[in-house]
């Protein structure tokens, strides 16, 4: 009973938040920032009177080749209420506009406080919505591909590395452990950069190729290497965690090595491995976003692209936040899946 109430409260909360979000992006169509190359129609703006009664405003075309920006330059007195920001040279740096393109606040440089809203006067919500989620879906497919290929490569490689690090033969185990230490001890972002750029720096040509496929495979290699090292430690823990007594009990019962492995120790290893693996795999979901450092077009890249004028829409920031929904949904599904697996293994204790 109590549990049901909580579930209901949670469901309502989630519905409210999601509803508010969808309303916000769909029906308001507000864009949260302005691209550098955006233009504002030159015309007469009215400026609400400032506290001192002044309110003059001049608008002229603004073009700065050096900065690569163009637009309008506005000059006005300090006023109130701010909605959008526009950077210009001179004493005043903020121009505030409202929905009706009325500039209602100009602030001096020293008063720079708010990043405000810009609106182009059109409710672009419904159109944007389709384009944005279409593009985010593409980015997500890339993310998913990277995720699956990383798992597919890192699990077997991790197993091999774990056997290497457990080897009694020092010339094998020592270097393997050093590699694992380096890979686990340095940022994945750095590894991505090294794997993508190093071949080019060393041999003068980028073996990956500069296109999206090349970037994808460079990312995949970096992720597989990185995650294989993490997985190898989990496997090592799982394998070494099975008490030697289990092996010996199998031996004195006359079982063969493979019978002991498959019928006695494997299940206990799996039981030990599942919880840390599920943590690591959910971390991987989120880590895939790091691939953008070498400009692989994963989902956050796709989201951020809208800020930089691509896909025909520009200067909007909400798609970036929307990528969070994908991550939440994906990791939520994995959490449920692993929870189910753990529950299945709950019938015995190790």
């Amino acid at each position: 009973m109590k549990k049901k109430v909580w579930v209901a409260v949670l469901a309502v909360l989630i519905a409210v938040v999601l509803g508010a979000f969808i309303w916000f992006v769909y029906f308001t169509g507000y864009d949260y920032s302005m691209a550098d190359d955006d233009t504002v129609a030159v015309g007469d703006f009215t400026v609400a009177a400032g506290a001192d009664g002044s309110g003059s405003l001049t608008v002229k075309e603004y073009n700065n080749d050096k900065k690569g920006v163009s637009g309008v330059q506005l000059n006005a007195e300090a006023g109130d209420e701010s909605f959008f920001m526009w950077q210009i040279d001179g004493d005043y740096e903020i121009i505030a506009g409202n929905i009706n393109n009325e500039v209602i606040r100009i602030a001096p440089k020293s008063d720079l406080k708010v990043l405000a809203l810009y609106n182009d006067g059109v409710n672009a919500g419904p159109a944007n919505f389709k384009i944005v989620f279409g593009s985010l879906n593409e980015g997500f497919v890339q993310t998913l591909k990277l995720f699956l290929i990383t798992l597919l490569g890192a699990i077997p490689l991790g197993l091999i590395i774990s056997f290497g690090s457990m080897s009694k033969f020092k010339p094998i185990s020592a270097p393997v452990r050093v590699i694992v230490w380096i890979v686990r001890g340095s940022p994945l972002m750095l590894q991505l950069l090294i794997i993508f750029y190093m071949p080019g720096m060393l041999f003068g040509n980028n073996i990956w190729g500069g296109d999206e496929t090349g970037r994808f495979w460079a990312s995949a290699v970096a992720f597989i290497l990185n995650y294989a090292c993490y997985f190898s430690e989990i496997f090592r823990g799982g394998i070494q965690g099975v008490p030697i007594g289990q092996h010996e009990a199998g031996q004195v019962l006359g079982l063969s090595k493979s019978q002991i492995f498959f019928k006695v120790t494997l299940m206990q290893m799996i039981k030990r491995i599942v919880p840390p693996m599920s943590n690591e795999i959910i971390t991987l979901v989120k880590d895939t976003s790091l691939a953008r450092i070498i400009a692989m077009q994963e989902i956050i890249w796709a989201g951020q692209a809208f800020m930089k004028s691509s896909h025909g829409i520009h200067g909007i920031i909400w798609p970036l936040f929307s990528t969070g929904i994908y991550y939440l949904a994906f990791s939520g599904m994995l959490t449920l899946l692993f929870g189910w697996v753990e529950k299945k293994l709950d019938y015995f204790k190790v």
Binding site: G245, Q246, V252, G254, L255
Partner: peptide, 25 residues
């Protein structure tokens, strides 16, 4: 060889101090 060894072990049974039952069975 491993199979000889397994054969030899079957002359004896061993009960351990800490049981070593297989927990998943």
């Amino acid at each position: 060889s491993e199979s000889e060894l397994r054969q030899k072990r079957l002359h004896f049974g061993l009960v351990f101090q800490n049981f070593n039952l297989f927990p998943q069975y």
